[in-house]
Structures are given as C-alpha cells and as structure tokens.
Design a protein around this nucleic acid. Structure first.
Lengths: 346, 346
DNA sequence: CTGTTAGCGCTTTCAG
DNA sequence: CTGAAAGCGCTAACAG
C-alpha cells in the first residue's frame, strides 16, 4: 500500500493523509482542494462536489497546525471569564462553547479571577496562539489589555455588559445591569418595602452598576440612606451571604428587605434565616440576582432577576462567528434584557 | 528599523520575531536556539545562557503552530468531562487547568453529556489537534473510544475512578467509589438507622459503584431490601432531589434515612423537607455525596462524603505531565481517598 | 476559474 | 556539541 520505503533521505513523512493525497485522487491541484474544502468561492461547483466526495471518502481531515501556520489564524477562540465558581459564568461558557464547536472552533478558556494583570497575562498567552476570535467578560479592561486587543486585530465580543453610549465601538452582548438593579428595587418598593438594603460582594463593575440602579430607585422614592449599602469586597458565596444576613439583621432601625447582588448570597441568607428563625418574607424580604440553579428550590423560593446568560453566550458566539467571517453586524450592541422573577421570598 | 520594503516578491513574512532573529542576534544557528529553548540537553551551558538572555531580551515567543507542525505534537491537553452542571466536574476542570497552564499547556475542554458517541466524536476532533496528552473522566469507554485512544499513542490519565484490578494498565487518579458508598452506609448504620434508602440519579458508572457499596453494607447487616433502591436515570438536580424525597416519604413502611448519590439531590431533599414540614434528622436522616458548595450551609447542615476532586484534578495533571515528558510513574493508580463529613442531617 | 510556486516558523535528521 | 538543509501540511501570490 503506502510505499514509505524508497523515500528521499531526510524525509519525515508521517503517513498522514494530506491535501495532496486528496488532490491526486480527485485529479485536481492542491490549491483547488484547499479552496473547495474551505468553501471559498470562485471554484467550479462540479469540482467542489468531486473534491468533497473524494475527501470524505478517503477520510481526510485538515491539519489545524499546518493551516494555522500558513494562514496565521487558528481555529481557536479564546474566552475569558472571571471565575468558574459562579455558575453564571459556567453557563456562559457552556453556551458559547457549544455554539463555537458547532461551527468548527475550539474554545480556549481563561480564568481571570477578576484580576487585571491575570487577565492581561492570559490574553498575552492566548494571542500567541493567534486565535480566530475572542470572547471577553465585561467592558472594563486595563489600558495594557485594551492595547493588546487592539493591536492583535483579533475580532472580539464583550459579554454581560453594555456601554452607556450607544455609539461605543466595542461589540457586546448583554443587558443593562443598572436597569436591572433599578427594576428589582422598584419591585420591592411596590411591595411596600421602605428600608431596602443593597448587599453585595465581589464588587466587580457589573455589581456596581446594579448598586447604581438601586440608588436611583431609592432616591426617586426619597428613601435612600447610605447606611443601607452593605458592600463587601470578598468573593461571593453562600457562606458570606449567611454572614451578611446575620450582620444586617442586627442593624437598627430594622430593615424591610435585602436585595443581594447575586443569588448565592441570597440563598445563603435564606439558609441563615432558617437557622436563626427569622421568617422570610414576613420579617424581612429577600431578593437575589441571576436566578441561579436552586433558587426556585429554596424555601421560600427566591425572588430574583433572571439574566439571559446562556443566550448571551450563544448570541455572542454567533456575533463573533460573523465577525470572523468578515461580516460586520449592523449593531454593535445586543441587549438581551432581563426579567423579574417574583417568587415568595419578597 | 525593520526593512519590510525590498523583499523578494511573493514573500509573506509577518514581521513577527522568529527563531532566526534570535539566532542571528545570539550569533548561533537556529537549531542551537531551538535546542537551547527547549532545554534539550547536549548543548553548551554557556550558549544556552546566551540564547536565553537574547531571546527574552528580544521578547521572543515561539509560534505554537509552527512547533506543532514540525514536531507533530501540540501544547494542548484535552480534558473530557461529562457535564458542566455538576460542580464536581467544574472543580476538577479548574484544578487540572491551573496545573497544566503553569506547565505551559493549553487546556481544551470537551463535554460528553455522559454519552458514548459524543465522547467518541469529541475525542476524534481533539485528536486532530495532536494533543500532548489527555485527561478523561472515568474508566468506562466504548470500544471505539478505547481504540482511538490506543492508536493515538497520546498519553492519557483517567479521572475519578480506579480499576478493580491493581495491575490494570490505565493510568488513573481517583478513589474507591464502592468503598465510599459502603462507608457512608456503615456510618448511617452506626447511627442506628435500619431502613436506609439509596437514592440516585444519572446512574453513571461511579454512581453504580456507590450503589454496590451501599448494598454490601446493608447485606452485611442483614438489612438489605430491594425496595430501598430508588434509581432514577434523569439528570441529577436539586429539583429532582426534592421530588424523590417526596416520593420516598410516601413509602411504607417508613424509612429511617436516605443516602443520596450526590449532594445536589440531598440539598433538594433538605429544601423539600423544610417545605413539607418533615424534620431532619428526627423523622428521617439525609446524607449526600461529594460535599459540594453549600452543603455546609444547609439547614440542617448536610452529612456527606467529601471527595478530593481538586486534588484529583491536580494530581492527574501532574501525572500526565510526567507521562508527556516520558517519565513513567511507578504506580499506575493513585488513590486519593475520601472522608465522611458528619454534620447534622444524619 | 485553476495550477504553480513559494513560503509560514519550527524541529529534526544528518554531517561535521 | 553544533550547523546546514530538508521538510511538516497547508495557504496565498501570482500567472495563466
């Protein structure tokens, strides 16, 4: 079969099926095969058909490394997320990954830990792989990171946030965090709550936007009081939520409601309430954010705002795919909205 | 500076800094630079030093694609996990990824959804990228998958499970699932529980091993009864745990304890108990598995078995790194054990 | 629309 | 221990 025998000396062939083999079998030139396989136009439909047939009859698979070397663009897409411990980002990752894979791209994930220099380092490493595109969480990046991104000329879509200015040049898919914070606060106000705490951890830019929304709603109702802000820079977790709940409940005058910036905190608060014998929502109402797994199973079920993270992941991946193919989407921003989920905790 | 001006026509150079640039600057040949950079021995230490200095003074970074093409081995490591919705696997992924990245490898994740043909397909795709190594969950794979793995000759470490036979040829790091199931059941027996249900979902091979351990313990105590097995093939979730709890509580004669095969089910059961006014552990004890996030925050806190998933991810990555470098570890299996965490739910 | 030719940037024989 | 030369498998100029 294969005559690896009388090769010219120094030849390192791997016996792997190459483009040339397909070309020979189809009776055309390698370039034609290359073009046909990539669906590049300006190639006779009949030849395309023949090449395709021969190619998958032979079981040919292009070598990504050779392709990347020759074209200076790999089939990798980088996705940078802050954490894997918040299921929000896992959902985002999964949706993006699935969409990208279906289009033939490999997803390379990087975890930044909400740290600007880690983000920059990760980006630098990824750029060496000449990714076809990148997905990156948020719009807040260090100048160094922004410079890297700009110089790389790799198409990029930002996730989970939208700029204030509609004419911002960045591509992004997300929703208005500030509006979401405001709307949940308004909902709480509509339930006759007067002293509504905003309890937050992590304090990343999106959390701070929710804070702004909360302030806006309370100020509009003339109910704003700085002592209602509980901002904790630690990482968000169930345990921290429980702790914050305990502390907040000791405050006087008593509060009506607590709006947590993320469901894990709110779930922890619900558990703490149980433990401490505080009845929710009678003594204090509790609301969360994101509608994470389990929030509907809590007792009482958690009132929260559902954010479209899977949709964001998918839509962003699709937008990126467009950009990679050179099709500029008409709108740079995609607002996927959010929804107040009224359950029994508030 | 760079004279991209009078190049021979047809030249596609990218202006990127190459090995040759470093070679020229260091006054040695490209091959020497290549060898020095990779720490290949049989190269003058003095030259190595010079090359290293020049190289990072110039800010040289090897091109992974060129390297992969020439050497037929990339710097990618594939990791195949069943799901992203079980935090167990997310923890595994994160630990492995961190370890691998520190050693200069890129992690490519694939999600199999507990599906043999998805797993095979994923593997096939990944193999085209000529990964340096692979990490794969479990020891149970279709014949086709096993064949692919064997033929690829890519080093591989299996996660979260250990073979029965100590002389099994596969590399794996995990713990004895059967023993863990047995030990938790024994713990429950030691707490005077007689009718202990085993409630499971997903029914993957590791869950079935825990079932075996449970059976073994009950049979030894002469307390085994097939009607105590509640096996549900659906995906594991808090909601399903709640549902199963409700159903089990309707059973008569009444049960003493429920041992759930995963913490998410147990957490859901705890919430359902709250909702239904069933007191835990007085009316029925509840135990889980894995000690997932939040289990210590439940009310009552969940008794469970802590599994060393982060350690498994890290140790497996390290073992793989050894294999990639050609160092065969003396033992093929690494048993990282488990721990019964006695809290208040049982 | 198709083929030829020259690389992409690195590793790897093979000589020295 | 070091260097020269020949590819790895593919894409992109360029000419036809």
């Amino acid at each position: 079969m294969k005559s690896l025998l009388n090769r010219p000396k120094g030849h390192r062939s791997t016996g792997r099926l190459t483009l040339h083999d397909v070309a020979r079998a189809a009776g055309v030139s390698p370039s034609t095969v290359s073009r046909a396989l990539r669906g590049e136009r300006a190639v006779d439909p009949e030849l395309v058909a023949r090449v395709l047939a021969v190619s998958d009859q032979l079981g040919y698979v292009p070598d990504p490394a050779a392709r990347a070397l020759a074209s200076k663009r790999s089939d990798h897409v980088t996705i940078l997320i802050p954490l894997l411990s918040n299921t929000l980002f896992v959902d985002l990752l999964e949706a993006a990954q699935r969409t990208l894979r279906a289009a033939g791209y490999q997803t390379l994930m990087g975890v930044t830990h909400y740290n600007a220099s880690e983000e920059e380092q990760l980006l630098r490493e990824q750029l060496h792989h000449r990714p076809a595109g990148m997905l990156i969480t948020g719009l807040d990046h260090s100048p160094a990171t922004q410079k890297l991104m700009a110089r790389s000329e790799v198409p990029c879509v930002h996730l989970m946030d939208l700029p204030e200015q509609a004419d911002h040049e960045a591509y992004c898919v997300g929703f208005r965090q500030t509006d979401a914070g405001e709307r949940m606060t308004q909902y709480l106000l509509s339930r006759q709550k007067k002293r509504i705490v905003f309890a937050a951890a992590q304090l990343d830019p999106r959390v701070m936007q929710r804070l702004l929304g909360w302030r806006k709603a309370l100020k509009a109702a003339n109910l704003y009081d700085p002592s209602l802000e509980w901002l904790n820079p630690s990482a968000s977790s169930l345990a921290l939520g429980g702790l914050m709940f305990e502390q907040i409940m000791k405050q006087s005058p008593a509060v009506d409601a607590i709006f947590f910036c993320n469901d894990d905190l709110a779930q922890g608060a619900l558990m703490a309430a149980m433990r401490l014998g505080v009845s929710v929502p009678q003594e204090v109402a509790i609301a969360g954010f994101n509608d994470l797994t389990g929030s509907d199973q809590m007792w009482p079920p958690l009132t929260t705002v559902r954010t479209p993270r899977a949709q964001v992941g998918e839509a962003a991946a699709n937008m990126l795919l467009q950009l990679i193919q050179g099709h500029k989407p008409e709108r740079h921003q995609l607002d996927l909205g959010f929804e107040i989920i009224a359950r029994q905790s508030a």
